[in-house]
């Protein structure tokens, strides 16, 4: 196993991991907001259903959810939803998006409910509509409040992408596994660690920069 050989394969696998990471964020960040509105709904049945769903998703392992999304449609209903490499990737993406959207929804909910009532009332007496209030007054305060917990989740997601390995998505572990397990070579494992460390390091710098950008006001 040459170094270049391993490097090339790791980059291939890392590409898949990155894609999974980015697509998960693209879908789960907005979906989380929708779910949070559902769980905060004044229509109680909706709020109960959504909260139960969030409880189930947060209360079971992501690995289990990957298995369920990938295998259950075929085994129980005989539907071939996810076939081939793309199918595996899609199944992983679906499981990740649902899982992370639920976590994000709780962060959003905390952020939105933590905004003092006085902010809404001030907006009301100044004649703002509900939409104006959310976008001009509430949103940026929520963003500032949730930045730290969101960055935590995002960093966890980087490492969780490796779980997609359990349904044989060709992410960074899967592509190299046969090689290092078959030959008993250890160093690629540490090499993989370097990939994660660099990625998370970059994210940490990014979130630090965001925090600085938002430091001009205090909530």
């Amino acid at each position: 196993m040459g170094f270049l050989d391993v490097t090339q394969k790791l980059f291939e696998g890392f590409g898949v991991s990155c894609l999974l990471f980015i697509l998960t964020l693209v879908f789960s960040l907005p979906l989380g907001l929708v779910i949070s509105f559902g769980s905060m709904s004044k229509f109680k049945p909706l709020s109960w259903i959504v909260r139960t769903f969030v409880w189930i998703i947060r209360g079971t392992p992501l690995m289990l959810q990957l298995f369920v999304v990938f295998y259950v449609p075929g085994l129980l209903f005989n539907i071939q939803l996810f076939s081939g490499d793309n199918g595996r990737f899609t199944a992983a993406l679906v499981a990740f998006v649902i899982n992370y959207a639920c976590y994000f929804s709780e962060i959003y909910r905390g952020g939105i409910e933590g905004i003092p009532k006085g902010q809404y009332e001030a907006a009301e007496v100044l004649g703002m509509t509900a939409v104006e209030t959310f976008f001009t007054v509430i949103l940026m305060q929520v963003v500032k409040r949730i930045l730290a917990p969101i960055s935590n989740e995002v960093i966890t997601l980087v490492k969780d992408t490796s779980l997609a390995r359990v349904i044989a998505v060709a992410e960074i572990f899967f592509v190299n596994e046969m090689d290092y397990l078959a030959y008993g070579i250890v160093w690629p494992l540490f090499y993989i660690a370097v990939f994660f460390l660099v990625f998370v390091g970059a994210l940490t710098l990014f979130f630090g920069w965001c925090e600085k950008k938002l430091s001009y006001y205090r909530v």
Binding site: P116, E121, A122, V219
Partner: peptide, 18 residues
Amino acid sequence: MRLKMGLVFQSFNLFPQY
């Protein structure tokens, strides 16, 4: 109707990001 009235709060309630 509300816009005919103005209200100043005990706790100011300025918008902190502005």
